[in-house]
Nucleic acid binder design. Sequence first.
DNA 1: TGGCGGCGTTAACAAAAGATAATTTAGCAG
DNA 2: CTGCTAAATTATCTTTTGTTAACGCCGCCA
Lengths: 200, 200
Amino acid sequence: MGTSIDTLQELLFDLAGVLPADTAPLFAMTTPVLLETNEAYIREEENSRRLAFIEQGVIRAYTIKENGDEATLLLRWEGQFIASHDTIINRQPSRFIYRALEPVKLLQIDYDVLEEILKTHPEYEPLRNFFLMKMLAESLKMLESFVTQSPEERYRELLAERFDLVNRVPDKYIASMLGITPVSLSRIRKRMHTKGKTST
Amino acid sequence: MGTSIDTLQELLFDLAGVLPADTAPLFAMTTPVLLETNEAYIREEENSRRLAFIEQGVIRAYTIKENGDEATLLLRWEGQFIASHDTIINRQPSRFIYRALEPVKLLQIDYDVLEEILKTHPEYEPLRNFFLMKMLAESLKMLESFVTQSPEERYRELLAERFDLVNRVPDKYIASMLGITPVSLSRIRKRMHTKGKTST
DNA sequence: TGGCGGCGTTAACAAAAGATAATTTAGCAG
DNA sequence: CTGCTAAATTATCTTTTGTTAACGCCGCCA
């Protein structure tokens, strides 16, 4: 059973040829964190520049709309990073809330500390680039789905690509992430059952 | 009148304290490129890892859907970078077409060449991070607008924030970027004229 | 300058989504 | 096992969007 550190060390080796033995300075500054179901990792208006690798569990990033409704921006799960992009990229208080949907295990580091480490250990730099690019690619892919597909098509694709995730997460959050209401998602599912079971 | 090089040198100085005099190795590898209206910069299935800073003009990134319709993913204009994210991030043939909507002036570099330069000149690294983060923040903001706002609200916001851009670009591309049809955008505009001229 | 073609608008109808509320289902605590 | 609560479904009605087609406007080019 691999730990976060194992995973990240492997990644660092693959990306930059950094041997696990040479990653001590990086991992010395990380802290393990546990969240219980429904616990907030980052709250609205918070300014902390924490960055975490998810070892286990699912975290939901959402915002509260003017009318009081929640809107889920994205879900992150094991093997991904989670951080307040408002705070890290724009140095603004987080407009989003990051909350565990399940018990979560994190490996955490402060972004400013990470930056210091990167100054003295530029060999870790590929790790940052890798995750930035990965997140950018993911965001663009989601964006693409909004301009090319209908809500039903987006849902079908999500089912096809992340069936496990859809089953771990309440439908209402999935709906919100697809840009529709839970009622609408329910109707889509009904349509899918009756009519075309075939697809994508 | 500032050139691309001036702008980028300024950015490099602000971000990393690199003096303009020390940026020669970087700019030695760049090429100016001119595109005329409607000329494609990157075509579908293309594998080139070109990266360009837009000095003047607007470029549209779009894909052709299964039904033959076009879907505009994003628009980029002067001061921004343009590149095939499929090709640079995932080393896949571009699924998008990048085409000039106006006469365009670019400052181009090959990404692989840039990577080589970054190995010997890590002091330029902040530039890459800056643009990656900037693009990520932009993508997430657009994504946010899809989960929190209606098409009409997205249009109003686009008008409020990028009025100049909306006026430079044909409505049908704006509509597609908002995830709706040109017919629908036309109705939204009609609604806005008659009813609420106020607000966000 | 006359015609052609693309773009935006409008119209008419079908399909889908939003809002609200009632009802059923399901997960969890005691 | 029972009961409570939240989530999901269903129903009804309204609003918005999609689809297709017609029409007018304008720019461009022969």
